[in-house]
Amino acid sequence: MHQPAPPRRDHLTRTHVRTALELAQVGLPVLPLRKGKVPFGNCRTCAGIACGGRPNMKTPGPCQCPAVCHAWAAATTDPTVITSPAWAPAWRQAVAVAYHPGGAGLTVVDLDNAAAVAWARQTLPATRIVPTTRGEHWIYRGTMPSANQVRPGVDIKSRMAYARWLGPGTGPLAVLPSAVRALVEKEETTPARGAVVSSSPARAEWDRTVATGCRHTERYVRTGLQRGLDMVRSHTESGAGSQAFGVAQFLAAQHTKCPGPCGLDAIGQQIIAAAVSVGVPEAYAQRAVTNGLNGVGAAE
């Protein structure tokens, strides 16, 4: 028997949908975020980008899935999609509303702590500011590639990325300055002149034969690994190296209480392969994943 949603949850759902429709009306492509303030995972048909990806992704694909798949690429200003039956289950579980800055012609400089905010105030031209839990979003008019960890506590969210909606902010929008664009020049997405992204051989995949001392079920490990690989592959323009570091660090943490071995080397090789597949130079991917698996505090 179908149980109706609790009144508080139902009110929250209506609030999120109403916010999304209001943002869409002014030209902000929106999407719901689930627990953890992250996008909803792909449906079975879209898992592993088997569907080819959305037509608006870096590599245009044929996917016309009506569900909230492919993270930022699902963002829309179409009210019929936002209120569609396919999106309804996601809204019922949503904890926040996000938007695609690049799709609205914007760039968000995400300042994650007080030190990053102080740096921005000394370095960047004033613009619209939105307070966040730990820092501020500085929003500029103009788009650029997105990138994570361009400097301590600073992420760039524009094309092929999403930002959580935290309110309209204060101050006039300034034009995206060259100082912000320069922050991504060191990102890992462009190999050195004359270099190839990868010439690596096929990599071994994780299975139970290399994880005889793992306390987790095979399904648990494979599900977590697949989700992590999907996250890395979703960063088709920038940030895949940093995402690979984060995935490796998270997955390694799940095995700290296992007697071992858990086959982390094989897991690492699959994460590296996923990063390389979206343009990360192999040496960078190898370093980022190794640091993540070993608990080093940065992707470098």
Rank of each mutant, 00 (worst) to 15 (best):
P172A: 15
K257A: 11
S234F: 08
W72Y: 15
A248F: 05
T223I: 01
Q226G: 12
P101W: 11
R121V: 01
R159M: 04
T236E: 12
T45H: 03
L173Y: 07
H235T: 03
L229F: 09
V180D: 15
I272L: 03
G224Q: 06
R159V: 01
A273T: 12
A161W: 05
R203G: 09
G260Y: 14
D230K: 01
E300I: 13
N148I: 06
P4M: 15
W206Q: 10
Q93L: 07
R219S: 13
P281H: 00
P101L: 10
V278C: 02
R121G: 12
Q270F: 14
S199L: 14
P191F: 07
L106E: 06
C69P: 09
K58S: 06
H216P: 07
A94Q: 03
C214I: 03
E218M: 10
E282H: 08
G295I: 15
L31A: 03
R18T: 02
G41I: 04
T189V: 00
S277Y: 07
R18N: 01
R203K: 13
H137P: 02
V81S: 06
A204R: 05
G102R: 09
G27T: 04
S178A: 11
F40T: 05
G297C: 12
V26C: 08
A20V: 12
G167Q: 10
N148R: 06
P7D: 08
T256L: 07
P39H: 04
T290D: 14
I272W: 00
Q226V: 10
F250I: 13
T83C: 09
A211P: 15
M231H: 07
P62C: 02
G135S: 01
G105P: 13
K157R: 08
T189C: 00
T223W: 01
Y140Q: 04
N291T: 05
G135T: 00
H70V: 08
T132H: 06
V232R: 10
P79W: 06
S198D: 11
H235S: 08
G213N: 13
V130H: 03
I267Y: 02
Y140P: 09
A244M: 07
A273I: 07
T13I: 09
C63D: 01
L251F: 12
A248G: 07
Q249C: 09
A20G: 10
A5M: 12
L176F: 13
V210S: 14
P172W: 14
K35R: 08
V289Y: 12
L28D: 11
A285G: 03
Y162G: 06
R164K: 04
A163M: 05
A192T: 05
A67G: 01
A71L: 02
Q226S: 14
R141C: 08
P79T: 09
T143H: 04
A114E: 14
S84G: 12
A274V: 14
M160Y: 13
A273K: 09
M160E: 11
R181P: 01
K37P: 02
Q269F: 13
T256Y: 10
S146L: 06
R233I: 04
H255E: 02
R151F: 01
G241S: 15
A74V: 11
T127W: 14
A88L: 01
L225M: 07
A116N: 10
R141S: 15
A163Q: 04
I267G: 04
V108T: 01
L12Q: 04
A75Q: 10
